[in-house]
Every structure is written in structure tokens, then in C-alpha cells.
Design a protein around this nucleic acid. Structure first.
Lengths: 256, 256
DNA sequence: AAACTATTGTATCAACTAGATACAATATTA
DNA sequence: TAATATTGTATCTAGTTGATACAATAGTTT
């Protein structure tokens, strides 16, 4: 499948899109102890935005979100969930929008459907950073991952708000869902997992208690030790065991 | 302000509605130890639905939801919050929809915009049942409040699903938000409050522990005793104290 | 190869929270 | 006046969390 982010994909009204509705994806990844989000840079500007798109007339919102994510970033089969709808009539500044288009030599008439008011459905994706070939499908230069606590200055439209709402949702569900493991690689140390939690919550946790809590959940499989990590005792590697998770009360009570 | 639920309000495409998007409201109330939801009965049928409507081109989703709630039920200034968007392309059966219209002598052409695919944004309202004049603004006969655990058999479209998702959201936020007090009258006994919690969670709680927990939150003001309740010790009345709640950590951490 | 260092896994103690039961207090009824 | 149903609170236990301590150990340094 072809992966592009070219504007023509978005501005062609011949495609049977639902009018007035879009989807924006907040794609979270975890790398080098930072919670990252994938932003796309508009050409010839310093303006970033969330990867988004429109909904075909015969697909569900979830399907559309999945397709948009795949098409614009190459990310497939990942954890994806709706978290909020943004419907402020002024959420997109049409002038800002036109300016971005013009900088890319896309000169749309001011009555073009793209400049109409759009409601946007926010989805967040939790991806395993190690499985993403960075930029492999992104043909817009300088798009990429940004530390959630160090975002670029100019983010288009209300996308900063959307992004922060996604982070808030992630925090709220951290203790109720096991979805957070979608952010980790196949195997990981307890320290790495703790670092993820600390980054999401933006606060330090006590190591001993975190370890006790995680192990008590009964959802982790302990593997071999991870050698070569430094001049100290080697940590165990763990794997998230979805079967154990299935059996645990946590999953039954709060599963997705 | 006039309050009607007449079909002409909804089917007139001259009104500047956003195309393809609707809002449906799940209105919760608490009465006689039951969690109730307000359903509207279509004329000349046994089919119930959630009160819903469309969004004007210049209003926000929250404003639209508030307006729809007021206009269709007479309920103003109540706690109202978005909880999910329903976007399955088959969520509304056009045949079912036409049938309902026909039974009310509204014969729309099959190409009418009302039969197009609509995405709907779910809002739930938490209202003080004692302040609602039942049916005062509802001029559709037999509309009314239904026990959430004893709903009518035929509920239109995907409205049963929407309703259950609203209940699920309510449960998830029960311990994180204080919004639940919007369902209680100005003053109430601890037993009544416990009954509300039990009804929402659909399980029994231990009285002594519930009382201890609630008092420890430091958000309730104890008033005089409530006399005449029966041949037993009179219970205290309590009032939800929003100032205390503001000061409590719970509110600061999880406020709306 | 012995000492050193940074980090890990676990234990432990105290503080806090929640589940379960008990019991005294009391407004009305009989 | 006694009986009864319900309330408010206490208490005991079990479980969870916060904080600290400490032994184990994989490299690194000497």
C-alpha cells in the first residue's frame, strides 16, 4: 500500500467523505525515557499538526482512524481508541489554514470544503516505538517524534489542546487499563516500565513499591536477565503476558 | 421559551444545521431508589428514543447539547458532559426511521437528509429529579423516566447501546468526580446517597463503610435531623458543600 | 583478582485504607 | 413503657501503600 501525506489526498472533494467531520490521531510512543508524540510538519512552514483525515461514507469511525493512521504514518494494527470530540466552531482558524495551503502551492478557493467548520474526533494510538521505522512512510520532511514535555512552539489549529486532552485521558486510564503495555517493546526491564509510568504521570515513583505493585498484578512473565547493561546487578527482562492479564481481575473488570 | 419536540423542528433542512452530525442526550435522574433515564416515545408507536437534535453552524457541541436538552425537555443549567461518539455507518436503520416518521404522518422522501448517515455525539446529563416537573415540557404522550434496569423493549436505532455506554462512563467516573451529587436533591440522608451509589454500581455496599468513606471526603455539610421518617432513629440530612469540595484534594485532582 | 560502584530484587516497618461485625442511640409504633 | 427498625460510630482484621534498609551482583577500577 502506498503511504503518502500529500495534500491532494485530503483536498479532493470527489472522494466520498462525510462532510464536516475529521479525525485526528495522537500517536504516543516511548523512547529514551520520553513519552513522544508524532507530529507532521507542513511543508515550507514551522507549523506542526497531528496526522488526521476524513471519513469515507461507508466506514466506521474506528475504521477510518485506523486507515488514516496507516495511510499517513505506515502504522498498522496498533492500539487505537477514541477519547474526545472537539467541536468548538472556532477551533480552526481558516486564515491559518489557507496560509499553510498557500505555502505549499495549494491555492484553494475560500469556499473550499476544507475551510468549512469541521468537528474532529480525537483518537490516541499507543505504539511500540521499536517497531516503527522512523519516517519510513512520512514523506514530509522534519515530521517526527516530539517529547510530550517539549513540543514545538507552533502547532496548528487546536491540535495542542487535542494532544493535551489525549495525555489526560491516558493518565486517567493508566490504572484501569493495561493498554499502556502497547507502548513497551516485547521485553523490557522493570526500570524501563517504571520510567514509562513516571513519564506519563510526570512524577517520580518509589522503585521498590512500583516493582511490588507490578509484580502483584500477575500480568508479567519474568524472562532471563538482561546482561551488559552496566557495572551493576543485571535486571530481569519481563514480557507482558496477555493470557495472565486475561485471567486477572483487572482485565476482567476494566478491559477495553 | 417554547419547548416542543415536534418533528418539524428536526426535519426542516432550512435550519443551518451541521450535516451528518447529531447529538443524543442520556438524561439520568434518581428517584425512589432507582436510577432513571428520560426516554421519548415516538407517536403512534411503542418505540422510545433518547432526546436528540442537531447542531447549528455557529454553536459549539456543548452549547448544542445544552440547547437540545432545554428545548426538548425543559431542563436547563444542568450537568452535561460528552462521553462518546457513535459512528457505525449502520447505527441507524433507515427503514425503522422511515416507519416511525410515517406513523406520525411525516412522509419524507427517501433522499431526505434525515435518512443520511449521521454520527452522533453522546452527552449525559445528571439532573436533580425533584426539580424536574415531569412531562411539563414534553408534549409527546408517554414519554418519561425509565428505570435503567427496566427499560422498554423497543428502543430506536442504537440508542440502547448509547444509553449503556453512558451508564458505563458514569460508573468509571464515580470515584473520580463529584458530579454524581448533581443527581441528588439539595439535602439528603446518607442512606439515600448510598442507595444512589448502589444503583449506579448495581451492587450492595456496606453501610458503615460507605458512611465512613463519604464523611472522610470532607465534602458534606451535616444539617438537622430528618424527622418523621419512621419508627427509628432519625438520620441526619446532608448537603453537598461545593466549597469544601473545592478545597479537597479530590476536586483539585479530578475536577471537571 | 580484589576492591569498588551503581543498580537491582526483596524485606520490613509504619501508616493508611477497606471489609466485616458489633453495639449503643433513638424516633416512632404498639 | 416496651418493642422495633434504623442510624451513627467503634473496633478488629486484612490488605495496600509509603518509606527505608539491605543483601546480591555485573561490570569497572585498581
Amino acid at each position: 500500500m502506498e503511504h503518502t501525506t500529500e495534500y491532494k489526498d485530503l483536498i479532493n472533494p470527489e472522494q466520498d467523505f462525510l462532510p464536516g467531520i475529521s479525525i485526528d490521531c495522537v500517536i504516543f510512543g516511548f523512547h529514551e525515557n520520553q513519552l513522544k508524540v508524532l507530529l507532521i510538519k507542513f511543508g515550507n512552514t514551522d507549523i506542526y499538526s497531528l496526522p488526521g483525515g476524513f471519513i469515507y461514507k461507508e466506514e466506521s469511525l474506528d475504521e477510518a482512524a485506523s486507515r488514516i493512521l496507516d495511510h499517513r504514518t505506515g502504522i498498522e494494527d496498533t492500539y487505537l481508541e477514541q477519547f474526545y470530540v472537539f467541536g468548538n466552531p472556532k477551533r480552526v482558524n481558516p486564515e491559518e489554514h489557507r496560509l499553510i495551503m498557500q505555502k505549499n502551492d495549494v491555492d484553494l478557493p475560500s469556499g473550499h470544503f476544507l475551510f468549512n467548520r469541521h468537528i474532529t474526533v480525537g483518537y490516541y494510538a499507543l505504539v511500540d516505538f521499536t517497531k516503527i521505522q522512523p519516517h519510513s512512510h512520512l514523506n514530509l520532511e522534519e515530521s517526527g517524534w516530539f517529547d510530550i514535555y517539549d513540543l514545538p512552539e507552533t502547532i496548528a489549529f487546536d491540535h495542542r489542546e487535542i494532544l493535551l486532552k489525549a495525555l489526560e485521558s491516558l493518565r486517567l486510564f493508566l490504572d484501569h487499563k493495561l493498554a499502556v503495555f502497547n507502548l513497551m517493546p516485547e521485553t523490557f526491564t522493570m526500570g524501563e516500565l517504571q520510567s514509562l509510568y513516571e513519564t506519563i504521570l510526570n512524577k517520580k515513583l518509589l522503585r521498590a513499591n512500583f516493582q511490588r505493585k507490578m509484580l502483584s498484578l500477575g500480568i508479567l512473565e519474568r524472562l532471563d536477565k538482561k546482561w551488559g547493561g552496566g557495572a551493576h546487578k543485571a535486571p530481569y527482562l519481563y514480557r507482558f503476558d496477555s493470557q495472565k492479564a486475561e485471567a486477572s481481575k483487572l482485565a476482567n473488570q476494566f478491559e477495553e
